[in-house]
Structure formats: structure tokens, C-alpha cells
Design a protein around this nucleic acid. Structure first.
Length: 598
RNA sequence: GCGGGUGUAGCUCAGUUGGUUAGAGUAUCGGCCUGUCACGCCGAGGGUCGCGGGUUCAAGUCCCGUCACUCGCGCCA
């Protein structure tokens, strides 16, 4: 009989039914408990943990005593039932242990820079430098497995919905709109560069023109922008999809079961908005009610415009703001009668620290109003205001005032913060909604001109007629985002596949037909030869995984992330190129000027 | 590019109002221990208090600069 060189079972496989068998296990020394004459080892592999025991009858005892944690060993031994009182109910294999007859050390571990067992926090740079150790740890290891399963589930559901996965190029052309590109110098064409795709946007539209009808891809995307906790530096993945001959409603109806299904499968029983019940909130409504285009619907607070209450008010500041075309937005703070003055003042301090002029407030306790706004606005006015807001005798209220855009944004942030402070958000839920009817254009204050507010390839609502006859800043697009718990998890649109409309849309931002042909030549040309109406969206895979893993940070769900300065501390990227490589690429490095001469 | 937070032993942290030789847990090394499962007990080694400068009789502690990590703003069609 031949026996496998390394193992007959995994470290999660053995149970009471195996008692008496001679087996072989391989894995890492997770923990060691040395009692002198008897020694226990928790042997770990990808699948689980099995307790190994050795005593003075075993040749393995001396070897194990001298072995550091995280060394890799093979154990030959025999499965034994654990005695009464020594069963470990916390371990799936806790009914048995393996008595070691022989041990083979496959790989000795040096002293560890960070322990693997346990879930303490460690400095980010050490975790990244020793990522192979970090990835052995339970939570991160499980997150990565979950990530892969989620992506696999997405593929299965997309194929089930009639989509086919196609790969698109990684070396492509720089896209003049959008984020900063990663460039790759061409050896064959001196002075020319490829760019890594920020998204397969133009390729997927070309696939529609080529008649493939329903495309999807788990697509790597590259953008050279500074990171955030929910935005990795450099590269990330999108569930990218596109459909021909569809209206936006069909995109939503198609994707709701996919997205709701993925969430339900991995939400560990937490409620998820069911497919068919995603609210479709117009962008303007969202800005008014939530002060954000990615509202957290778990937050029960609603913002209200109360400008009309301050057109003539004893509170001069608000009267002046409203008189000058500004707005006042109210953020309810229910049940705050017993909150200290510090609670309200701290909110104001916070708003100032965020760069706003401040956040006004009214307190109310047993029907009695308090605070400077209430005092100046007068009790009669306050009662009218509270009636309009539906607030009670023990509810406070915050006020964000100023130019509409700024006031809405501040109100949105305040809404989130108030709800957090008052613990009003149900954390064990996934609330999904569409934000629809995004404005097509916006006013660029720096450049003093009209700019695309999101995707220039989107179809403006009203088409050519709207572009010709309507104030551009009032035109909406067939453009939508999918939002979950305050995170934008997908964005999409019906595309503009008509060349004349496309040129007109760009003209309004100051570009000519020649510019369009020059910058988007491939796509523009494709639209001359029979292009189907089409649309789609792209979901941020990393963000979805982060939400489903309950992680606060994308590094917790990514195998080999870069740090905040876009460096890979394990592989040492980016690195200096050799002169020979640079010569071949016709590239010369210019050292940045020294910033300081001390 | 800008702003906030953090930085003390390999790791997690404590260190009072500026005052003696900077401590604990864990890890490492040595010793003891036959039923643990975060095993336990005894002992030892281990420190450029991120780095540089300044104030002071005296700095881990106060000030300035700088670096690393991080969160946010700008940026992200």
C-alpha cells in the first residue's frame, strides 16, 4: 500500500468515526502546549485545526519541543478518541486527537515578526511586508475565501441571466476624460504610450455594436488616484456589464435579482432589500431628503427644507441667507431632551472642523424650546416649524443654512452624524436603492464652463431636442447609481449611440466634432455603421465584498494590497528601472526637484 | 498638494506635573512540569522612547522640523 507523501486527511477531516485509523497530516504549528512529558500541538491547514499529542513514547516529542510556531510538519500517527473531560467542543475536530508516531519537519519557521494565532491588530506596514503571514490569520483568510465565492456567485448569476463573459484588453489607449491614467511606454513607437484601462467602457460599447447583446466581465480597472478606505490605490475590480436594445428600467429589473441574490447569499441571514423592491429615488429628491447621492436608507432621519419659515424671522442670520437665495435645511434629532448642551455644541464644532460655517440647533424639553435660534425666531414660529416637521415636545433639531449645494451637503453629513450619535442606524441590514435621473451637465466653477457631471457617453433625457432647446444645466441623463448602506456600489447609464447627438453633447462642453473624432475615434466610427441602443452598469466588486465581510477597509478583503502611497511593500513595487530597459523604451527619468534646501 | 490621528522591547500596550536604573503582557532563549486547548511555574536576554534640532540643571514627557503608517479634503468622466 502506498500512502500519500504529505497527508491522508486535511486538518478538518478527522472525527470520532476515524478513531483507530493510522493517518498522516501536514500543516503549520498553530499553537504549542508543552507539559514536559506530554505536548500538544494545534496543527493548522486551510481547512481547520487538529490537535496532535506526543509523549515520551513518541519520537516526535523532542522534535516538536524544539520547533517554533508556524513551522510546517508532517505527522504520522493514530487517531484517538479524547478522554472524558478533554473533549474540546469549540473545535470541529475536538472529539479526537492524533497521537504522533513520527514527525517530519518540512520547513522551519524563524522567529515571527507578527503572531498568526489570535486576532490582535498589527501595524499596517508589517502586515503588508509579511502579507503571507497576515493571510494565514483566520479573519483575513476567511475574507479572501468569501471574496472569491462572492465573485464566483456573481458569475453564476450573470450567466444565469443570459450574460456571457468576454475579456477586454489591458494595454489600451489613454482616455482623455476621467481619472489619471497609468501609462506604459511603447518600445516599438518612441514617445508613445499605452494606458491601462480605467474601465472597459468603450470596449463594452464596441461589443454591443459588434452584436454580442449581453456582455459581462469581472474587469480589472486601473486609476492613478489617491486612495480612501473604500478606494484602493491603483487597481480594483468591477462587475461590468452591458445590454443591447434595453431601457434603463430593463437594466434595473435585470440586475436587481443578481445583486439582491448575491447579497442574500452572503449576508449571513441579515435582511436584504428584495429584488423588485429597490426604491428608485431621483437624484434631486435624494439631495433634498438625504443630502447625498448615496443615501444610507437604514438611517430613519429625513432632511426637510424649512427656508420658507425664515423669510421673515427674528433670527437675522437665516433671514439674510434665505433672502440672498440660500436655503435652510432641518435635520431632526428626535428624543434629545436629556442630551447635554455639549452634545449640540459638539455637533457645531464638528461642522466647523469639516469646513462649514456652523450647524445651528434648537433644543426642546417638555415642549420648552431652547437655544439662540429658538429665542430669536420666537415661540410661535418655532411651533409652526415643529408642526411642519412633525417633531414632538422632546425632539431637538439641527439646521444647515447656506447656498443650496453646500447646505444640502452639510445637512447630509449632519444627518449621518446625528443618527450615529443617537444610535439610530440598524447595522444588521442591507438596504439597496437606485438613484436615478442624474444631471447630465454641471457648472464647472474653476473652468467657468459647462462640464459633464458624470459619464459623457450617457444619453441625455430628451435627446437631441433637449440638447438644442433646453438649458443644459436642467437636462437629466439616463444615468443611475446603485447604493447600499451609504456606499455607491454600482453606476451605469443608457448610452448615447447616436453620432449627431454625441457631437452636440460634447459641443455644449466646448469640444468640436474633430475633438470627438480625435479622442473617441473608435467608438465614434463604430456608431456610423449600425449601433444598437444599449446601456449597462458597473458594480464595485471590492466594495460589495467589503460590505458583505463587514470590513472597514479594502485591505481586509484584498490579497496583496498596496499601501496608501501606492507601494507594494512585499514585492517592492514600484521599483527603479534599469538603464537598458529605459533606453529600449526611449524613456529618460527626470529627477523631481528637491523640495527643500535645509 | 493640504489637514487630523498614531509612533515606547519582535508584537500589544502602560509610563502621573518635565525628575532615580523606562515597565507589563506576549514572543524569543534556558530550566521545571503527563491532559492542555490563550496550559502553568521559575529565570534570562531584548530599548537610538521613529529620526533631527531646540528649551531646560534635567526631556519618553514641552517646542520646531522631518519620516513612517493611517483617516479625511482636493482628486476619483
Amino acid at each position: 500500500m502506498t500512502i500519500h507523501a504529505y497527508r491522508t486527511h486535511t486538518c478538518a477531516a478527522l472525527g470520532a468515526s476515524n478513531v483507530g485509523e493510522a493517518i498522516r497530516l501536514s500543516g503549520w504549528v498553530h499553537r504549542k502546549r508543552d507539559h514536559g512529558g506530554v505536548l500538544f500541538v494545534d496543527l493548522r491547514d486551510h481547512y481547520g485545526i487538529t490537535q496532535i499529542v506526543a509523549d515520551s513514547d513518541s519520537s516526535a516529542l523532542a522534535v516538536l519541543e524544539g520547533l517554533r510556531l508556524e513551522s510546517v510538519i508532517t505527522i504520522d500517527g493514530e487517531v484517538k478518541a479524547r478522554g472524558q473531560g478533554t473533549v474540546n467542543p469549540n473545535l470541529p475536530t475536538g472529539a479526537i486527537e492524533v497521537f504522533a508516531r513520527e514527525i517530519k519537519v518540512l520547513s522551519r519557521a524563524e522567529e515571527l515578526p507578527m503572531p498568526v494565532a489570535g486576532e490582535q491588530e498589527y501595524p499596517e506596514d508589517i502586515r503588508l511586508r509579511y502579507r503571507f503571514l497576515d493571510l494565514r490569520r483566520e479573519t483575513l483568510h476567511a475574507n479572501i475565501v468569501k471574496r472569491t465565492r462572492i465573485i464566483s456567485d456573481m458569475r453564476r448569476r450573470m450567466e444565469g441571466a443570459g450574460f456571457t463573459e468576454y475579456s477586454t484588453p489591458i494595454l489600451t489607449a489613454s482616455s482623455p476624460e476621467g481619472a489619471r491614467d497609468f501609462l506604459v511606454p511603447s518600445r516599438i513607437h518612441p514617445g508613445k504610450f499605452y494606458a491601462l484601462p480605467q474601465a472597459p467602457q468603450q470596449y463594452k460599447q464596441l461589443l454591443m455594436v459588434a452584436g454580442f447583446d449581453r456582455y459581462f466581465q469581472i474587469a480589472p480597472c486601473f486609476r492613478d488616484e489617491d486612495p480612501r478606505a473604500d478606494r484602493l490605490p491603483g487597481e480594483f475590480y468591477q462587475l461590468d456589464l452591458e445590454m443591447s436594445f434595453v431601457t434603463q428600467e430593463e437594466v434595473w429589473d435585470t440586475m436587481e435579482p443578481v445583486m439582491a441574490g448575491v447579497f442574500e447569499s452572503f449576508a449571513d441571514g441579515k435582511p436584504v432589500t428584495p429584488a423588485g423592491q429597490f426604491r428608485r429615488i431621483p437624484h434631486a429628491q435624494s439631495m433634498l431628503d438625504y443630502g447625498s447621492d448615496k443615501p444610507d436608507l437604514r438611517n430613519p432621519l429625513l432632511i426637510r427644507d424649512v427656508s420658507a419659515h425664515f423669510t421673515s424671522s427674528g433670527f437675522g442670520l437665516f433671514e439674510k441667507i434665505v433672502g440672498g437665495g440660500g436655503v435652510v435645511r432641518a435635520i431632526p434629532a428626535p428624543g434629545t431632551a436629556e442630551k447635554s448642551r455639549k452634545f449640540f455644541d459638539d455637533m457645531n464644532e464638528w461642522a466647523r472642523a469639516e469646513g462649514h460655517a456652523g450647524l445651528g440647533y434648537v433644543t426642546r424639553k417638555g415642549g420648552e424650546f431652547g437655544g439662540p435660534i429658538a429665542k430669536n425666531h420666537g415661540e410661535e414660529g418655532m411651533i409652526a416649524l415643529y408642526d411642519a416637521l412633525g417633531l414632538g415636545p422632546n425632539d431637538g433639531c439641527f439646521f444647515a443654512a447656506g447656498k443650496e449645494g453646500q447646505a444640502a451637503k452639510l445637512a447630509g453629513h449632519a444627518r449621518t452624524r446625528v443618527a450615529e450619535q443617537l444610535d439610530l442606524i440598524d447595522k444588521d441590514r442591507f438596504d439597496l436603492c437606485w438613484i436615478v435621473d442624474f444631471p447630465f451637465y454641471e457648472w464647472d466653477e474653476d473652468a467657468k464652463k459647462v462640464e459633464f457631471s458624470h459619464n459623457p457617453f450617457s444619453m441625455p433625457q430628451g435627446g437631441m431636442e433637449a440638447l438644442c432647446n433646453q438649458d443644459p444645466l436642467t437636462i437629466n441623463a439616463y444615468q443611475y447609481d446603485l447604493v447600499c448602506n451609504g456606499f455607491e456600489i454600482a453606476s451605469g447609464s443608457i448610452r448615447n449611440e447616436n453620432p449627431e447627438t454625441m457631437v452636440k453633447a460634447f459641443e455644449i462642453t466646448g469640444l468640436t466634432q474633430a475633438d470627438v473624432e480625435d479622442r473617441f475615434g473608435g467608438l465614434y466610427r463604430a456608431f456610423q455603421y449600425g449601433a444598437p441602443p444599449h446601456g449597462g452598469m458597473a458594480a464595485g466588486v471590492d466594495r460589495v465584498v467589503m460590505l458583505l465581510c463587514g470590513a472597514q477597509n479594502l485591505r481586509e478583503i484584498t490579497l496583496f494590497p498596496m499601501n496608501q502611497k501606492a507601494e507594494d511593500l512585499l514585492m517592492g513595487a514600484p521599483s527603479v528601472a534599469e538603464n537598458k530597459q529605459l533606453r529600449e523604451l526611449h524613456v529618460r527619468v527626470i529627477e523631481p526637484p528637491k523640495t527643500r534646501t535645509a
